[in-house]
């Protein structure tokens, strides 16, 4: 049994990584927007905890800084901004009916197995620990993308995007003990700017089509049909 031979801190990292994956599933299936934001905050906190653990284990000092940065940004600031955004958009009680939640979950399970299969060739001996974490990170990234596919609500799509970023960060931290600090700062800044831009965009979108249902954006195709390209699109109205 290999797991019992790993040092306790590495076991802890694995445990946290598994929880990050679990939260990806929760994000995917969570119908309530506010709860989804909370799950995302927890995922950010877990990624920060992974960073901290890796910092403690490897005694790499700059990782302490990036752990704090992750915690502040992903677990506190961005969720807070999203929270405020949903409140200002009047979406606190918004729930989204996933059409086939079980199917989405099954697809996510397939993605997990697929990403495990993808990283199997990295069978360099002794790399098992890294490889396993990378499989999980890849799965988190793919599930984030899947979430953007299956969700209609723009805010939920942003959550999917952000959780993809979480997956990438997890891979970077655990596989290579972190990126150089400059890169990390740059990425953090990018994410923050993206978040602000998303906020601005949401208001713009709602201004013009009166909803945040991205399926409604189908109407922006250059067809002559004034009713909309997809008459069967569900009209998931914003509750105001």
């Amino acid at each position: 049994m290999t797991l019992a031979l790993l040092p306790l801190l590495q076991q802890f990292v694995l445990l946290l990584a598994a929880l990050v994956l679990f939260l990806s599933f929760v994000l995917l299936a969570q119908a309530r927007l506010i709860s989804a934001i909370h799950s995302f905050a927890w995922q950010g906190a877990l990624v920060a905890a992974v960073t901290l653990t890796v910092a403690v284990a490897g005694e790499t000092h700059h990782l302490y800084f990036s752990a704090i940065l992750t915690l502040a940004l992903k677990a506190l600031l961005i969720p807070w901004m999203l929270h405020r955004l949903t409140r200002r958009l009047g979406l606190e009680r918004h729930t989204e009916d996933l059409h086939w939640p079980t199917l989405a979950i099954m697809a996510a399970v397939v993605l997990v197995i697929f990403s495990y299969w993808l990283v199997t060739p990295m069978v360099a001996q002794g790399l098992a620990f890294t490889r396993n974490i990378i499989a999980v990170s890849l799965a988190v990234v793919l599930i984030g993308l899947l979430m953007m596919v299956v969700r209609q609500q723009a805010v939920a799509q942003v959550l999917g995007f952000m959780s993809m970023e979480n997956g990438l960060f997890l891979a970077a931290v655990s596989a290579t003990a972190g990126m150089p600090l400059v890169v990390e700062l740059g990425v953090a800044f990018d994410v923050l700017v993206a978040m602000v831009l998303f906020g601005v965009f949401f208001f713009q979108i709602r201004e013009s089509i009166d909803s945040l249902d991205v399926d409604r954006l189908n109407r922006l195709t250059e067809t002559a049909d004034p009713v909309g390209a997809n008459p069967f699109a569900t009209t998931d109205e914003v509750s105001q």
Binding site: M1, T2, L3, L14, A17, A18, V112, Y116, V123, Q125, L127, A128, R131, N132, I133, A135, V136
Partner: peptide, 8 residues
């Protein structure tokens, strides 16, 4: 268990 706990 399969992914994280079994080695190479």
């Amino acid at each position: 268990h399969v992914i994280l706990e079994i080695g190479a």
